[in-house]
Simulated assay, not measured.
Amino acid sequence: MRLVMASANPHKAIEIAAVLREAMPDVQIVPRPPSLGDVTEDGETLEVNALIKARFVCAAVGEPAIADDTGLEVDALGGAPGVHSARYAGPQQDAAANLAKLLAELRDVPSHQRTARFRTVVAVVFADGREVLADGVVEGTIATAPRGEGGFGYDPVFVPDEATPSTFAEMAPEDKNSISHRGRALRALAERL
Results as ranks from 00 to 15, higher is better:
residue 25 P to N: 11
residue 59 A to T: 00
residue 140 G to T: 05
residue 67 A to H: 12
residue 66 I to P: 07
residue 47 E to S: 13
residue 17 A to R: 15
residue 189 L to Y: 00
residue 180 S to W: 01
residue 102 L to M: 13
residue 131 E to G: 07
residue 156 P to K: 02
residue 101 K to Q: 15
residue 79 G to E: 04
residue 37 G to L: 03
residue 70 T to G: 09
residue 143 A to N: 12
residue 63 E to C: 02
residue 120 T to N: 08
residue 78 G to W: 04
residue 166 S to F: 15
residue 143 A to C: 07
residue 163 A to S: 14
residue 108 D to Q: 12
residue 65 A to F: 10
residue 152 F to M: 06
residue 105 E to T: 00
residue 137 V to C: 08
residue 182 R to T: 03
residue 18 A to E: 14
residue 188 A to D: 09
residue 185 A to E: 06
residue 182 R to Y: 07
residue 139 E to Q: 15
residue 40 T to K: 14
residue 38 D to C: 08
residue 185 A to S: 09
residue 124 V to M: 13
residue 172 A to G: 01
residue 144 T to E: 14
residue 53 K to I: 04
residue 119 R to K: 15
residue 134 A to L: 08
residue 97 A to W: 10
residue 133 L to W: 09
residue 93 Q to C: 13
residue 11 H to C: 11
residue 3 L to H: 12
residue 127 A to P: 12
residue 73 E to L: 13
residue 62 G to F: 10
residue 143 A to Q: 06
residue 173 P to I: 00
residue 98 N to R: 02
residue 59 A to G: 12
residue 36 L to K: 03
residue 33 P to M: 13
residue 114 R to L: 05
residue 77 L to G: 02
residue 101 K to P: 09
residue 64 P to R: 02
residue 33 P to V: 01
residue 11 H to F: 13
residue 26 D to W: 06
residue 43 G to H: 02
residue 14 I to V: 15
residue 11 H to D: 14
residue 146 P to T: 00
residue 31 P to W: 12
residue 191 E to P: 00
residue 141 T to P: 03
residue 171 M to R: 00
residue 160 P to H: 11
residue 7 S to R: 01
residue 154 Y to W: 06
residue 118 F to E: 03
